[in-house]
């Protein structure tokens, strides 16, 4: 009697555990918007530090809109470019090339179309056809219909559009709400590390999640902290710096 009861509770526990796991999974899916439809298209490589920002990866055929940070756009494209993808930047005459190279974008596989002008729809269409990652600058003269056509074409050809500014119907919308630079003082120091607060919205109407992201991290001078553990860490950092 005692034994059978324990078996029954064991079975119940398995049921309960399974149900809880399923609930958690659906909660995560609804939160990040990666339903079943996401799994059938392959992904481009993405830096592991950005997996929180795009949990489903950089999926081919997707549109990711980024508001408020060119660095984040470059970071999204960097890993794929380093591993052989071709990147084109349309309508970004002020793109920092050195920054792109430092982020990991291979300059041999990067083309710039700084001023597409009135031909922007044709140019973007051609680029979506032939390139892997298309970076679109802010203020391109694209109508909503043009954008829908581009998305359809990207889905068909398997390229990724990373757009600056809002893009109606984007699969992921990243808004940089705050960015904070460390390393400057009052007339001394230099820019060293930066943290971004990114608000992520998978679809229109889905809940917003926020991620704090450290994009540039430079080895800074060790700062002496009062606590003992901080001291130890400082010493280790100093040793790494010397090595």
């Amino acid at each position: 009697m005692f034994e059978s009861e324990s078996v029954v509770t064991g079975v119940e526990a398995t049921h309960v555990r399974l149900a809880r796991a399923r609930a958690a999974l659906t909660a995560v899916e609804s939160r990040v918007g990666s339903g079943r439809e996401g799994w059938d298209s392959p992904t481009l490589p993405l830096a592991t530090s950005l997996s929180e920002v795009l949990p489903g990866g950089l999926r081919r055929g997707q549109v990711v809109s980024v508001e408020g940070s060119t660095s984040l756009m470059l970071a999204l494209a960097a890993r794929a470019s380093a591993e052989g993808s071709w990147t084109v930047a349309i309508g970004m005459p002020s793109l920092g090339i050195v920054a792109a190279a430092r982020r990991g974008i291979e300059l041999h596989r990067l083309a710039l179309v700084p001023h597409p002008g009135v031909n922007v729809a044709a140019v973007a269409g051609a680029c979506v056809d032939g390139m892997d990652v298309v970076l679109c600058g802010p203020g391109l003269a694209l109508s909503d219909a043009d954008r829908r056509r581009l998305v359809a074409r990207a889905r068909e050809r398997g390229s990724v559009i990373v757009a600056a500014g809002s893009w109606a119907g984007a699969h992921a919308r990243l808004v940089v709400e705050a960015s904070r630079w460390e390393g400057l003082g009052a007339g001394d120091g230099r820019l060293r590390s930066r943290t971004l607060t990114v608000a992520i919205r998978a679809r229109e109407g889905s809940p917003v999640s926020r991620v704090v992201l450290t994009l540039d991290q430079q080895r800074s001078l060790p700062r002496v902290r009062p606590s003992g553990s901080g001291q130890a860490r400082t010493e280790r950092a100093g040793l790494e710096g010397a090595a």
Partner: peptide, 22 residues
């Protein structure tokens, strides 16, 4: 990709598509 860029160059002219180096 090369063909694509040449096509865009055909649309915009020679200076329309740029290659960059550090």
């Amino acid at each position: 990709a090369q063909r694509t860029l040449e096509r865009v160059q055909g649309l915009l002219g020679l200076e329309g598509v740029l290659a960059v180096r550090e």
